[in-house]
Design a protein around this nucleic acid. Sequence first.
RNA 1: AGGCGCGUAGCUCAGUGGUAGAGCACUACCUUGACACGGUAGGGGUCUGGGGUUCAAAUCCCCACGCGCCUACCA
Length: 903
Amino acid sequence: MEIPKTYDPRQAEERHYVRWEAQGCFAPEVNQDPSAPVFTISIPPPNITGSLHMGHALQHTLMDVLTRHRRMCGHRTLWLPGTDHASISTQLVVSRELKKERLTRHDLGREKFVERVWQWKAESGGQITKQMRREGASVDWSRERFTMDEGLSRAVREVFVRLYEEGSIYRGARLINWCPNDQTVLSDLEVEKTPQAGKLYYLQYPVKGSDRRVTVATTRPETMLGDTAVAVSPNDERYRDLIGTTLILPLVNREIPIIADEYVDPEFGTGAVKITPAHDPNDYEMGARHNLPQVIVIDQHARMTEEAGAEFTGLDRYAAREKVVQQFEALGLLEKVVDYEFSISKCERCKTVIEPLISTQWFCRMSEMPRLALDLMNREKKPQFYPEVPYEKVYTDWLENLRDWTISRQLWWGHQIPAWYDEAGNVYVARSEEEARSKAGTNALTQDPDVLDTWFSSALWPFSTLGWPEETADLETFYPTSVLVTGRDIIFLWVSRMVMAGLKFVGAEPFQDVIITGTVLDKHGQRMSKTKGNGVDPMDVFEKYGVDATRLTLAGASAGTDIRWNDNQVESYRNFANKIWNAARFCLLNSEGASVGRGFAGDPQDWALHDRWITSRLNRTARDVGAALDGYQFHEAVYALYHFFWDDFCDWYIELSKTDVTAVDATSQRDAARSRVITVLEQALRLLHPFMPFITEELWQRLPGIGAESLHAAYRGAKVEPTVMLTAYPEADARLIDARAEAEMQAVIELISRVRSIRSELGLKPGEQIQLFVGPANNGLTGLFDESVTAQIKRLTRAAEVSFKSEMTADVVGRASARAALGGGLEVAVPLQGLIDFAQERERLRKERGKLQDEAEKLEKQLANPKFVDRAPADKVNELRQRLTDIEQRIKALEQMLEALAE
RNA sequence: AGGCGCGUAGCUCAGUGGUAGAGCACUACCUUGACACGGUAGGGGUCUGGGGUUCAAAUCCCCACGCGCCUACCA
């Protein structure tokens, strides 16, 4: 059999996914067991304009690990894929394309533009779905969904109509966040605050019929043109007498009142606040409290309106600012200007400064639905967040202080609002135009031109993708889903809204658990971003190190915390993949006469030590991995697998099996040993499969003795070729976890390591054969060293001979020996016939003794403390006593050795 | 302004009351019949600083310093 010495990930990645997908291995229908438990994950739908980034790669890896694990446990698993339509982004992308043709969307008109977007989607919108295949994501493509699909759109209309009919959706004029660049309203969550170095302008407003002036401080002088009051704190002595009097607003000469409101902080600025109800959220509220008029001085393009006065009409807001300041200065009404840092709201997408405007929009009331979600958390602690701290609190805090959600957008791409107006302006909200017509009693209707916030449809994702509002079999079977894996940035935008919608419309939470992943940062700890150009493209990493290594890196990063991306880490997992490849290569090159699943017959107590040991380690690993995955501690699972495979299986088990496995004669002993290594390998491949799907499949396919009967019972009737992904995930058998075998093996390992250490420290050449004395023979441990173990010790320490001595005195082992004191009173000696440098050997032994003495001293001190002995648990005290005894024994042995070496 | 998190080996990070760990990097030796993307043996840490609780603190509490994130209507 030709097996290359180095693993080439590429060819395995190309072969297996296609077959898995074609044979329906990812679809829940592959499961033939009607009583199987169900496991469902609904993917956070990536945006159709996007391409795969490290955040996706991380989340997809975790979802795939969970899905593949549950599938191997025989569960009926569904990981449902799809994408969302991303109104603004997509519209911007397509508009940019049009710009190249010197066209705008208005040139095309709405219908043609939307057609064009669909066309763009068909051509360029499928990038992520291709990339997910490369990742190995075991999603059921036959159930792929898109938020603008007919079915999902129907769900959107249904929800809209129901909410409208019960009064939870309303239309009205409110102060909203307006993006003058994108020409649309934005919800509070799509606005980002950034600190900004600016100025605070102190403007003086004359008091009517008096020489007095009231000074107000503002960061936006241009808004003064729309002021309709000045507010002061009711308890502020400085202004008390002015409350209720009138000011003359400079430049516009409007008379405005001085009002009192608790909101005003007398400590800040001058203690007097100009109030512009039409252009500031706080002023808007105060205006409502005091019934102030709203004077609109800025329009949707952030230019001044006619209301701002003839001189200002049409000026950009910043030009207007300058002009206002100039004129105040000219009038002697500019008291001062100071530098001032404040935070400014920008459009999350285009970074344009948001203009708060009064505008008629559709809103969704946030009163009953957040209550449903909060009640569920209080009552049943659902969904369960991982990590619970701090995300559960982040989630509930947000739900407790929600403002109504602006759901309309002035865009063309998206779900057009199912509301129609007749000529009189009456509104008819309906599931279809026909329904609206029959409600209106006329055909002369125009549909509201706006579309809904993309997140409105995303909120329905976990059930709309399963067929809701129809009562489909999928909805019945797969809802609520099991777990949601996502980033912390969309807990508000998406997670909470899904919970609200799920509770409201299906009557059950959309998922039981929520895993919040960290952010993948660059190696300097910076957020990856296009503008900084510090992003790492997962596709490049796949190409360079392989998909499996990349997945292991992502899964191996600590749960919930941010990940600094570092190629070194992937490289080490690439090396691990190569280690797996070569361990398998060894097994396969020596596989004649071997078969998976054989070799471990009979009572385990009759097996060789290393066989009992590896079986114990394997079962312990299966137990640890299972427990880690149940708690979503992926990194613990990776750690356990890595060390089991490399340290236990490769470094020791394969080495200890080599003599038997590579025997020249085809004996049953040889074949049984071969079967045992290959059986352990096969179990290890199964354990690794959810994390490293490609290499495990590639190798598993080559193992002798695998076939349809290797599959998990739930998949045996399915029409699939044997595949590791449908085998049973190894489950720990508690009876095979053998602490004694592990302790005994530990003694053998210590012996070998110490002898190697002696060899190394004394600078013996690798080929130089030595002799070993081990004893004293009355020690319980020497019973371990049967013929086979002794042979292994010889091989691994390059010893020509191992002799067991009843005593380990200098007389017996010879004065010229390098020696070591092992645990349990065991000693080992390497006689060196004059080669030994006595001074050097004494130094070595003293150093060793020094270390032990330090430790003994600490233990003695602790054990001499009556408080410790009295108050610490008895087994802890015993443990330390035992450790001390062992150390003392070793020290004693070392002292005898030193004595024997004395000049 | 508030809330939360983090600070452990040169680097990236596990560990969260009872003997300080991993990967990478580093040193020495080794082309031994799976693997140099490898093997063997090593070096390296007053667990940010200070105080407290405890028989025992990297781990729990308080304070300080440094870093990061999130939320918020201070003109």
